[in-house]
Computed example of a mutant assay.
Amino acid sequence: MSSRQSSAPTGDAIKPLLALVKYLQTGSIERPLIELVLMRASQLNGCAYCLDMHSKDARAAGETEQRLYVLQAWREAPFYSDRERAALAWCEAVTRLDPIHGVPDEVYEQARAQFSEKELGDLNMAVILINAWNRIAIPFQSMPGSYQPPKH
Rank of each mutant, 00 (worst) to 15 (best):
R67A: 01
I136F: 09
R112K: 14
D98V: 05
A86T: 04
A87P: 00
P104W: 10
G11E: 07
D52F: 03
D52E: 06
A13K: 13
L17H: 07
T10V: 09
E35Y: 15
S42L: 02
V94R: 05
A87W: 00
C47L: 02
A73G: 09
F115P: 05
Q72M: 14
R135W: 05
Y69L: 00
A61V: 00
E106D: 15
G145L: 03
F115L: 05
A87N: 01
L120G: 13
H54M: 09
E84R: 04
S3M: 08
I34S: 11
A58R: 01
V103A: 13
P9Y: 10
M125W: 15
S142N: 03
Q66N: 10
V21I: 12
L123W: 11
V103P: 13
S2I: 02
L17M: 15
R96S: 08
S55I: 03
P78C: 11
D105N: 15
M143D: 11
A48P: 11
T95W: 13
L123P: 15
R31E: 08
G11F: 12
A86G: 05
K118H: 07
A58C: 02
V37E: 01
Q72I: 04
Y147M: 05
A113D: 13
S28H: 11
I138A: 05
D52A: 04
L24P: 03
V70Y: 10
R75Q: 13
E119Q: 11
L24R: 02
F140C: 12
V103K: 13
K15V: 06
S81M: 06
D122T: 00
A77V: 13
K151C: 10
P9I: 07
L44E: 11
G62N: 10
D122S: 02
Y80G: 13
L71M: 07
D57F: 07
G121C: 08
M143K: 15
K56H: 08
A41G: 07
L24S: 10
A89C: 02
K15I: 09
R85D: 05
A8Y: 15
L129V: 00
S28F: 08
P32S: 06
